[in-house]
Design a protein around this nucleic acid. Structure first.
Lengths: 339, 339
DNA sequence: CGCTTGTATGCAAGCGCTCTCAAATTTGCT
DNA sequence: AGCAAATTTGAGAGCGCTTGCATACAAGCG
């Protein structure tokens, strides 16, 4: 395995020599900042092509102090929801010549801090934080050094651009839909209480209930942690406690999947016996059995908007942090309750 | 938004000055290569701590010619299967001080080539290619410059480490299980014909049939492309053509999900009317309705093994490319056919 | 005590590129 | 043709760190 690899890459100096010009001139045609005479430009381009010269971003970063890299703090590289956002970021950053550098915080404040440090050490030109548990303070601190975009929270601070969906409305949307379908006993499976968005969804649920003149019954609210298992457990509890319900609104799709399985295990059919609504509208929800009705969070677009905002900050423009509203995707996991 | 950020980061020179030593000495305690007197070391460490100095990987990369970064060519940053592998890579690389740099090839030869070029330009120290459509030749070329690890194919070449699961056995495993459960009419939904692994699975299917003395019926093989929609379409065709079958083996889980939905639409129940087996055992399969029986590809472990192999190559060791065997995870989407 | 080993330190030359500044060249005008 | 102005070009000083080489100093020996 001790293979001798092609060694020294072609450098700008070699190109300059080959084209009979100075390095400065080569650099100029590369960056395109200053005009260069036609003849020289052609000669240089020819030399570049012949030598297959590729400028070193490393050297360039060092010289310019910019790395053309944007650090992305995601929570897990294999997260179905953030995966979509990452894709949106990637699709938006690449054409602009930037490369995303993904690191995972694993919903752990300390890890997330280390991520930011590592990114700063690598001289990224900006940081996009996808939700996470970092304190606002930590983000403000981060923004002192680098343009910072953060999703999943509302925060106004200098040099920072925050964007968030309206989870409250999303919660209302789902609940109202169930209400309008004739459901009165709607269970709610809550998400991770540490995440503000989670409680926003719950507030939406309660607000919709209230608006419909239905008393809020705390017995119908089950704790959860955004993972499948907790959705399943919630159903177990509900059934075991003999709490009547005709619908379930889960604070995210993963818990809805778990709930679906829990219902199935109990011999309850979706949507015949119980209507089920999720939140996120993950790609898989379309092919769930039955296909899941869910509050759609356009994650891909979220990523795009975040990336564009970053690009704007980088170019000195005031970023636009507007996100599309949450919508409800109705599928087959819900049904109208007859009179 | 024109915030004036903290500007010049702390440099080694400042540390050297603060500690009253030369930069070389600072560098030496940083890299730990050469012995440094106790007193100076303490002084330097103190200065580093006080100034909160973090060495610039960019400058270091330029000076050493190594970036402590490993390029990962994945196919889609939001792929459920490769996501797990990426996580395995991340978990293995980080403790070793390396950072993975993920780029997406989107199953497109040209894009994948660009990915490799971009990674090389960024001076990554090695490349891990997760399957993809690159020609063996392109990989061999890549390995001329950088340590290369590739998954999902078998390839022996200098400086390259390839690892692959035994998809043929996986195909046999699933089929044999169905056979042993009493099924005789087993439909197969094929994957993307361009991927060798896909046809390997099919070969396994046919081999198992043959071994059981059952004639292979080409009518039972439906084309597919590894996506949900094609699984659904396959069921449609099967049913429309009145081809009898009691089980379906889909070449991956996503198509199995699609097939499950297709069956549901046709009023066929899983597993009562039709048994269903997938391939991959994606995280979601555990919570599918019903939970899906599937050939488990340990993707996370795959990532780990790939990362370890890379680390070994980097340290001049002969890499180990052994992957665990494929196993069958039996869940509720299959049932025994009564004699 | 002078000599050879050995160890700890500093100097300075890169790594490959960018960018300022001044020199060299061209252009425009009278 | 002659001069100022505009344009193109090159030299060279960084960017922050590593490292080979030389120097300084301490220890070990006869």
């Amino acid at each position: 395995m001790s293979l001798s690899r092609e060694s020294a890459p072609v450098t700008m100096e070699m190109v300059a020599k080959a084209a009979g010009v100075s390095m400065s001139t080569v650099s100029r045609v590369l960056t395109g900042t200053v005009a260069v005479s036609e003849t020289k430009r052609v000669a240089i381009e020819k030399a570049i092509a012949e030598l297959r010269f590729v400028p070193s971003p490393v050297a360039r970063s060092l010289a310019k102090g910019r790395s053309m890299t944007i650090g992305i703090v995601t929570q897990a590289i294999d997260s179905p929801f953030y995966g979509l956002a990452m894709r949106g970021i990637e699709d938006e950053l690449n054409p602009a010549g930037y490369m995303p550098l993904f690191v995972s915080g694993h919903w752990n404040v300390k890890t997330e801090c280390q991520c930011i440090d590592a990114l700063r050490a690598r001289r990224v030109d900006g940081v996009i934080v996808l939700t996470g548990r970092l304190t606002d303070q930590a983000l403000i601190e981060c923004a002192r050094f680098l343009p910072t975009v953060v999703t999943g929270r509302n925060l106004t601070a200098p040099g920072i651009c925050a964007m968030n969906f309206d989870h409250f409305s999303g919660g209302m949307l789902a609940t109202r839909f169930l209400l309008e379908s004739g459901h009165r006993r709607i269970a709610f499976i809550a998400g991770d209480p540490d995440q503000p968005n989670s409680s926003e969804r719950q507030r939406g649920y309660q607000a919709a209930l209230e608006a419909a003149g239905i008393a809020f019954d705390p017995d119908l609210v089950m704790p959860g942690d955004f993972h499948e298992a907790s959705g399943m457990l919630a159903v177990d509890r509900l059934v075991t406690a003999h709490i009547p319900f005709t619908a379930i609104f889960a604070a995210n799709d993963q818990m809805a999947y778990g709930a679906a399985l829990g219902l199935r295990r109990r011999g309850l059919r979706v949507p015949d016996d119980v209507s089920l609504v999720g939140f996120d509208d993950l790609p898989g929800s379309q092919y769930a059995a039955p296909p899941l009705t869910s509050v759609r969070q356009p994650a891909y677009e979220l990523g795009q908007v975040a990336a564009v905002a970053m690009l704007q900050m980088l170019s000195g423009t005031i970023p636009t942090c507007d996100l599309p509203p949450l919508t409800l995707t109705t599928r087959e996991s819900t049904r109208r309750l007859l009179g």
